[in-house]
Amino acid sequence: MDMQKNSKNNGTTTFTSVVAAFALLVCSLSAWSIPYGNLQGFAEFPAGAVSFADAVVSYTPGSGGLTAANMDASKALGAPDYAGGGACSNAADCRFVSLGAGGSIVLQFIDNYLTGSNSSDYDLWIFEVGPDVEDTLVDVSTDGVDWESVGSVGGSTSGIDLDAFGFGVSNLFSFVRLTDVASEGGTSGASVGADIDAVGAISTIVAHVPEPNTFFLFALGLTALFLSRKHI
């Protein structure tokens, strides 16, 4: 009777230890800030790859003679991957989209929200690339219809503090609009206007909890195996 009771207690203790160890592992990993960047700069994103824009809502190229290779709006999605150079010779090798003089692009976060941070830290990061420094106006929206200006970035990789414009952690934005300032930088060329590699939400709330990936399942298995061997 006592042996059965002790066996049950040991089993319960082992299971509890596994759960606790796995929870500690998940919390430790989620606390990491993962650096993302390109040839022109880096920023840390606590939520990892989910932080970056997922969809192009609209793209309105500006004037100046953009070539087709520089007009693939999908190049602004996902994590930054610019490796240098100016105008692209073909769309397949291009790592950014050019807005053209006065052009604009609207991007959407689908699996996360952009928020403020209740601090003076940067909340939104724009990866604008290329040899020319071109100013870009930035607006944010909850619905893609009504927009709020949050200033501008002065070219290259630059951040914006949403809290400086009155937005905190309770404000959830799904859309970002970038508009090239036509009076800044060149006015003609194959990649004229701001060149956007990526847009990331440093301060973010994940909209959908992803299913456990292979790494976490593997880590859980190793933790369970280790703890079970300790009780043999």
Rank of each mutant, 00 (worst) to 15 (best):
L217C: 09
A20S: 15
Y59H: 05
C27P: 02
G189D: 08
L227R: 04
G86Q: 08
G62K: 10
G37T: 09
A31E: 14
G78N: 07
F15I: 12
E44W: 07
D146Y: 13
G221T: 14
T60S: 15
S51C: 11
S104G: 04
E148W: 12
S58F: 01
W125R: 04
D180M: 07
S158G: 01
F173V: 05
G159R: 09
N38S: 12
R229N: 06
G78C: 00
V181W: 06
S58T: 12
F42S: 15
S183H: 04
P80Y: 02
P35C: 01
R95L: 05
N213K: 02
N38D: 15
G168I: 00
V129R: 10
N118D: 15
G116I: 07
A21Q: 14
L39D: 12
G11T: 04
I232W: 13
L77T: 09
A92L: 07
L124F: 06
S28K: 04
A21V: 11
Y59P: 05
S89R: 11
V209S: 14
F109T: 05
A182I: 02
A53S: 14
V150L: 01
Q4T: 11
S74H: 09
L107K: 04
T13H: 11
L25D: 14
S51I: 03
A47L: 10
D132E: 15
L137R: 11
T187M: 00
G48W: 09
Q4P: 00
G37V: 02
A69P: 10
Q108Y: 01
S7H: 11
A190F: 09
D180F: 05
D143T: 10
P61I: 09
A224Y: 07
G84W: 08
A79Q: 15
I126N: 03
N171Y: 10
V176T: 04
E44C: 12
A194Q: 03
L178T: 03
N112T: 14
V106T: 15
D180L: 06
G65T: 06
T214C: 01
L137W: 04
G186K: 12
T60C: 01
N112Y: 06
